[in-house]
Nucleic acid binder design. Sequence first.
DNA 1: TAAGATACCTGCCCGC
DNA 2: TGCGGGCAGGTATCTT
Length: 283
Amino acid sequence: MPELPEVETVMRGLAPSMEGAVIARADVNRPDLRWPFPDRMADRLTGRQVIAMRRRSKYILADLDSGETLLVHLGMSGRMTVSGDPLGQFVHDHPAAAKHDHVVLHMDNGARVTFNDPRRFGAMDLLDTAGAETHKLLSVLGPEPFGNDFNEAHLVAAFAGRRTPVKSALLDQGIIAGLGNIYVCEVLFRAGLSPRREAGRIAKPRVSGLVPIIRQVLSEAIEAGGSSLKDFRQANGELGYFQHQFDVYGRENAPCRREGCDGEVLRITQSGRSSFYCGKCQR
DNA sequence: TAAGATACCTGCCCGC
DNA sequence: TGCGGGCAGGTATCTT
């Protein structure tokens, strides 16, 4: 499910209820998600104050006063929602525990943070805050799209000599962190690039042109609160709205939205994932 | 070494 | 109404 805009939206929604609050109790209802939870996770969370909430790629990170950081990945179907917030700004009011509520954090301010993940592709881990960037999941990540390290020179160098389709290259988290299937499709539409083009055979100016487009698409999606297809909810339980702005994703056989183009949106499968694009104006 | 295929797990939608 | 097949936003690991 969640790509960078969805994870950013969830993190921003959680922060007011978690930053500065103490985890009074942690309910861990199963031993694992995608991987086993770290040893004594509930004990290591209980009594800890959350110092700061942040995001790296599609990971939510909660820095604790113990010197450890709680790492959360939502996988495909994961949700993190807040209920019972004392400020009364959230939709839910302590709903009964639902199926697939795998971890529940009871904050000392009355908020209840629930991690729900039917498909269990999500993950949680605890790592040393000081060495977070060396964690096996974080050390392999490329630059953040909004960071200074992500720029035209970086993308041109990363694409050079690559024979893989540009679609796959943009999904490679080691080249750019945070893009997923939906937003890569949207980015390639705006760039007028076919997802099938070999990354290493795209002219440098066009590669460079992807940088502002990527930032623009992600910014608009964050602004809209992410995209809700099947599973995604913001931390307050509300839907995101960017899906209404999709130009190609999920629009198979629909007319192309580019002005002056009379093509239609095609769907193909690339390395097991659906790609949506206009066969006429994306080259 | 790079690129593609597969596996993980559950729920939903569609056609029959 | 019920069943089976196909599909899903991610990513580690296997195979080629």
